[in-house]
Structure formats: C-alpha cells, structure tokens
Write a protein that binds this DNA or RNA. Sequence first.
RNA 1: GCCCGAGUGGCGGAACUGGUAUACGCGCACGACUUAAAAUCGUGUCUCGCAAGGGAUGUGGGUUCGAUUCCCACCUCGGGCACCA
Length: 944
Amino acid sequence: MKEYEHLKLEKKWQNEWEKKRIYHAQNKSKKPKYYSLIEFPYPSGDGLHVGHPRPYIGMDVISRKRRLEGYNVLYPIGWDAFGLPTENFAIKTGKDPRIVTKKNSENFKRQIKSLGISFDWSREINTTDPKYYKWTQWIFLQFLKKGLAYKAKIAINWCPKDKIGLANEEVVGGNCERCGTPVEKREKEQWMLAITKYAERLDKDLDDVDYLPQIKLAQRNWIGKSEGAEIDFPVAHPRVKRFVILHGRSSRPGDNSYPWLKKELESRGYKVEVPEMPNSGEPNDLEQADFVKKHCQLDEGTVVVGHSMGGIVALRLLEQGAKVHGVVLVATPSTGLFLDKKPRPTVTQAAQRGFKYGEIKQNADYFRLLYDSGDTVVPASDGELFAKKLNSYCQFSTGEKPHFQGKEEPAILDLLLPHIKVFTTRPDTIFGATFLAIAPELAKKLTGKNFGIKVDTERENREKLGADTGLKAKNPATGQEIPVWVVNYVSADYGTGAIMGVPADDERDNEFAKKFNLPIVENYKKAGFEDFGKRITKFKLRDWVFSRQRYWGEPIPVILCEKCGIVPVPERDLPVELPKVKNYQPTDSGESPLANISKWVNTKCPKCKGTAKRETDTMPNWAGSSWYYLRYTDPKNAKAFADKKALKYWTPVDWYNGGNEHTTLHLLYSRFWHKFLYDLKLVPTPEPYKKRTSHGMILGEGGVKMSKSLGNVINPDEIVKTYGADTLRVYEMFMGPFNQSVAWSTESIIGARRFIEKVWRIGEKVASPNASAQDFLQSNVSHSQKHLGSNSSLPKLLNKTIKKVSEDIETMSFNTAISSLMILATEMEKAPSISKDDYKKFLQILSPFAPHIAEEVWASLAEKKSINLSVWPEWDEALVKDDEIKIAVQINGKVRAEIMIEIQDNEEKIKKQALGDPAVLRHVAGQEVRKIIYVKNRLINIVL
RNA sequence: GCCCGAGUGGCGGAACUGGUAUACGCGCACGACUUAAAAUCGUGUCUCGCAAGGGAUGUGGGUUCGAUUCCCACCUCGGGCACCA
C-alpha cells in the first residue's frame, strides 16, 4: 500500500493547478458567474496565524462547490497593505514600508498558497501599489468634484508625547496605545467625506440585501436613524425688558412702522417703544439721538433696533455712551449706513470698541449686527442663519409683516427673541416637559457664560450634573414658564444640543429632575405627533474623517494655492505618488512626515501656475478597501478603475464573508463608495454585496485571544508541515460553527488527520483491481450511522450524505457536513467493497474541504481530468428516503420504547403497534389512555 | 446602562419548524493485532442506582401531551455602542 505523503502530494497538485490555471476566472464565459469574496488581509510582519485562513477556507469550500456546479467563479485575493503596524515599524527601524510590505505580502502569499485555496492569483492587487491607489485618489477627486469631500475643523485625538494624531482605535481607555500618555483633543483641519448625505439610502437599501440579521442590525444601529420632531421653545431673556425701534428715513412720522414686530414683541411681554423722531435724517442724526434719549428709556434692559437711517441714530447713541443691552442694525448698501458699499466708519469703530460685529451677505443685501460684547442674545455667527431666513429686507422696511415661507418665523424675531430648538422622538410628551436641558456649548452661546459643566465621555460612574442657566423658556403646549438647565448628559453634536426634560416619562430626565428638585408632572395630556413641532429625521452617523497625518497612506491628491484655494490635482497627473522620506516620524506640529519634504510639498498651482503647496494629509486605511472588490474585476486596467463591461459582468459580489469587527465601518464605507459610484453611473448596481456573512475568530488554546505577547500564536506552517494542508482545512472547518469563535486545540487536529488517512486507505482499496471488480456490493451498516437513518445500505447512506453536505455548505454548516462525511467514510471502510463510482462521488463532495487528497485519489481511479472540472453529484431522492424507520414511544412525554414502522403505515396501525409493545403494556398497566399524539415519522406520545 | 451573540459530558461541539438530548471529533479506559511499541480496529465513556427507575442542556418560574428550542425574571462569558433625546 502506498503511503500518504501529504507534503509531496499537496505541493504536486498546487503546482499542477497553477500551471493549468484551473482557478482563473474568465471575464467572458458562457457559464453563469459567481463572485465570492473574502476580506483581503493586511500583510503583517508576524505572518499568518491559524485564524487567518478560516474565512479563506470557508469561502474556498463555497467557491469550489460552485465551480463543480458549473459556475464561472471569481475568488480573488490581494493585500490591504497601508496600515499602522508597518508605519510604526518604519518609524522604529527606518525601513522603507514599501520594502517591508513587499516582504510581508510575499510571506503571506507563500503561506496562503500552501493551503491550496483556490484563489485566482492572476488578479492579485495591493492597495499600496501606485497603479492601484491612482484610482483610490481618482475616486476621491470625484467626491471633491461633487462637493462630498470638504475640509472642516474638528477635534482629533492627540498624543502630546508622541506628538501625533491618533486614530480612535489607537486610543485605549483614553490613553495613547503606544506610550500610555493620556490623549488630548486638538482642533485640526481635516478632510471629511459627506457620508451623512447617503445615510437615508444606506439605511433603506439594507432591505434589498441578504445580510445576516445581526449584520443588518449593526449597520442600522450605526446609522442610527431616528424619527422625531423639532420643537421651538421661546426663551425670554433674563435681562432684556424693552425694545426701542428706530425707523428709517422713508418712514413718515406717525405711520408707526413695524406694527407686526411691535405686536409680536408685546405679546411676549416686552415693552416696545417706537419713537416718532423728527424725520430729517442725516445730517440730523445727532438731533434724532437727542430726541430718543429724551423720550425713551435706555438702560441695560433695552435693545435698540435700528433700521437704515435709524441705525445711524443707534450708533450715535452708542457713541454717546448709552448703556443699552444691545443694538441691532438692519441695513443695505444703499442706505446711509454705508458709503460706497462699505460700512461707515462708525460701524467699524463700534466694532473696534468691542462690540460683536458680523457681516452677512445675501444677494445684494447686507445685514450688520452689533451687540454688546458681554451678553449676546444671538451670536453674530448665527447671522448666516439670519440672512437665510430674512429673505427680503424690503418687506421689513415697509411696515408689513414680511412673508416667509412655511412655518418659519420672521427672522428678525429669531434674532431678537431667541428660542431653543429641541429634538425629541417623543413630541407627544410635550405636556410633561418641565424643563429644558441643553449642552454646555449651547449654554455658552446663549448666555455667554461658562457654567463649568462638561459632557464627559467616561464610561462608568456618570453622575448627572447640571446648573440653572437663569433662562426661562415657554412650553408651547402648556404656556408655562420652565427653567433651562445646562447638563452633562446632552451633547452638542447630536440633534439640536437641547432636549425637553420629561421626567415623568424619561429615565434620565427623571434622575436629573429628582436630583435637582425640578417639578415632575405625572399625568399629563398626550399631544399629537405634529401638534407643536416639525417632523424631522436624524441620524447618528457622522461624516467620515478622511485625513490622517501619517506617511503610510494614499496622499490626498489636492494642491493648496494661496490664490485659488483648494485645487484638485488634474486627473492626468495621478497618481500622486508617495515620496520616499528619510524620517517616518510625524512632525512636531502634528503634520504628516510628508510636510518635511519641501521638494515634494512645494509645487505649482495647476490653475494659476503660481507657487502652491501639496496637501500633506494621507487617506485612512479604510480608503483602499472601500472599492477593492471592483478592481478585482479588471485589476490591470490603466485607463479606468475597471472596465465597464467587466464591472457589469461581475458586480455585485454574490457572497462576501468577513470578520464581525468589520460589519459596521468597512461595510458601511464601501457601501457608501459604491453608491456614490453608482450615482456617477460608473457601477451597475446600487449595492456592492448581495450576501454577507461573518466568521468567528479562532482563539488560542484555552479560549484567549491569540497574541504575540501571550505567546500562543499558532503558525499554520507548522501544521501544514506536520499534518498537511488538507488536515488543517478539515480541522478548521470541523472545529465548531463557522460564525462563532472557537478555541484552537492542537491536540484535536489528529481527528481530522485520521479521517484523511481513512479516506486514503479506502482509496487504495477501491483502486486495487480485486476490489473494483465487485461493484455495487451492498453492505448493511449499523451503529455509527443510525442518526442518518436506520438499516440503510451504503448507496442510501451515500445519497443522504451528498444531500447533507450539499445543503450544509450553503448554510456554512461545515462542521456538520464533515461529520457526515466522517460517518460515510467509516461505513465505507467497513464495507466489504465499494463501487468506484460511489467512491468518486464521495471524493467530489469531499474535495471542497480536502482538495489535494481528493484530486490525488481521483487521479488514482484513472480519471484523466482534474476533479475540479467534474460535476457536483446529485442525490437520488428515492434513496434518501427510508422505507422503514424507528420511532419513539413516549408515555406522558417519557420515552419508554422504540418501534420499527413501515413508512407507508397509517396512524391507526402504528398506534396499535405502539400499544402492543411489551414495555408500553407494562407502563400502561390498566390505566386509562386519555390521548395519543402521533408525530409523523418521529414519535407517539401516550397520555395517561 | 443599551444592543447583539453564547451558556449542553473531562474538552470542541450536534439536535429539522416544539418531537428519541449528548451525533461527529478529541481525551480517557479496556480489548484485538504485535516479541514490544506506534499505527489501526473493536467495545465502553452525562450522572445516581445492583436493578427497576430517577435526575441533568447557566438559575428560577411559565406555556405545552411534550421545551436545549417559545415566554417572563435573573446569573455568567464574549463582542459592539455609549447619557443619542
């Protein structure tokens, strides 16, 4: 008998398959296509550990089955090679990440190849290859073109010791992952991608894909869609009591301008004065100011509203030292507040005196706001909003109430009478709202004061803190005045930064109200959803921070020109190649190391040809992996990221399996990129992946995570050498449910090896001439296969196994598929003889799991063509069914006997048979049978 | 705190849609073969009990003729999120 030499045999077939290009996918084929995908690995310096291959083997089983089923299968692999470990290694050793990456990926490749995974290596890609990242950059430019890539100042994690911006995953418990220094927040301009623009579709289109339910849920939770309402709570200012409205030159004395404004203000309890100034305008503004001083009360509770000429009067009052709370000027360039469309010196002078000053442009109209510096009602920065809302100053000046669309309040009221907008998913509880809780940032904005309250993100021990702002809001439902508190449990960056406190209904509000003795209204009236607010949809999803101040990433292809601003690198100049540097250390200022290469940084502006600088930020790791599956369809294309025909043929991916840790970010990001490309009509489908599953991690022995520091990392090289790739494959598929994490056990591998050797021995037996002469000798099998059906012949068992394996592979129940293959193998070995045809079928259904031995034995049975080119066996439904089966007889739910029945027996006959069984008779023993329940082909339950 | 997943022999795990719990594998014990060992094969292996029989699927309840499976409450472990309004 020939010895099973796994090393020799596996190498032989791997070479043979490669030579014959057996796993190469065809971009044109009469066969139906099948695209199976795994998450491409990050080639780390540590090499492969036994956890890596689990998903590759799983999808390999699927892919191999599909090939035998007649599909043109694309099962590609590549390297997601930009990443922190390589960068950190470069910083430490000064080694070029390019060289390190090449070495690491070659090692990974050798290791993966030794496992006999049926990857199409001709389509291998690498995200760090300029030919690849050219297209990553190109896609970025499309985002830029569509306004979906933009720069914004946001807080990043900053390690003050390493002087480096940290990704969220590098912050461990608030400290720098590497040096343990507490991480600070630092404001920095970052590139952002507007993924939130796609939030609605990313949520909704989940309906149309076949992802595991948990994965869909995780995506939905991350997107965080919530339907609610925005409700305005008018706020009375604690100090403003009175408005003095000074009208412009065109208003005749006595016509009492702004009647609507006066009315509105008065309805909120303010005093309003509209002095009928002598209307002689400039140069009589001083005279008018005197008039106002004489007739109106100007004190710290007064806001002066000056329109046009009235504005100049208001400025005079300021000049003369009027101690008013604030001044609001409303004017256009055509009025006297301006000279040659520039603000009058008085305006700028006032600003220089410390008044807040904001200029707002909207069409040709200008609005200028001035407030005293200490206590703004509405900050000047909100002027933009103001401008948007107040769509015509003219209407304001005519004394008519301006016409605003929808429910919008007249913007002048927005300005004079602030309100707090809250977001709530329960607008129906508004009658129970007894206070407003606002974020510290908003409190600062509204009152100018710092209350010393901070929203802390610490996970434990979060005590509710708060302080009364002194502001009073009016509950629009009850009309009641309610206090406004600044709290540490409302964050500024979600919703409106303000909530209504309904302590009777909301747990957090309740806790807060109790602590600070705020009123709790228990039995209140419920409101209709839209009675007081505007229906609105919010998402938790934030825009994607796309900048990294790192070396080892795709340079963001943008040039910063002093004259022209942000200028995209022309597409013909792509890729912007990552230059070589001497030092990989980030700069002291936190810029990427690229900032130090002046030769690279300094460039010409593509627009004006003047001097300009390159963007030195690079892209995050997620960039290259957001579209890699598209590149596989046409990996060498130099004219486009992939040919349209190839994309049309292969997309979407039919089945994508990956790690649970990637079911939120990576999956969401790549869906976002795909949808964007879909909108540009560059990909044919709105979704990239038809089906998504995930695999569990392989843990070290004892159930702990495999890690270098614990020294429990298992290198597959050792296993392949000692036991063979087929054994490793079978073991990894057998060790437990594919989607759950399992602990590695080197001790248990021997079981898989014994199984493989058994397959070998049977193969030897079948291949030997005297055995093959007795085709189809049936043998009775017993014991170990009783769970597949009683008293089956070998052909029966074979057909049952074909069915079971075929079905189990589809649900990734690889462990049970192998279990049934083991049972069949055991029975085949026991059988006096097995037909060659039957054994070949066994080899075919085994081949996805153990391709090498299957191919070797297949060839030994005089097959000329590779088993890979054969056709997946079908099972015979007639042979799968049993004629005679064993069912259980229960008495009061307890099994007391087993009886054999014919499959065609009717219920009556079976019941009679059960009641006649000696064990049953003993248990029934004269008692009355109340009920008999018969479950077809399963059991009979006799109820006494 | 919330969401998701899991809890079954000494161990990894199996069990269809509520229907014979512990398949398959590891380990262990005994036996066969062998001068011997390895390999292989066979038998046994949840637990109490001589047996009849009883008890076990994290814990406690419930629904049901029947629950690992469904419901309620709780405990433990793993993963994710975080005062999300």
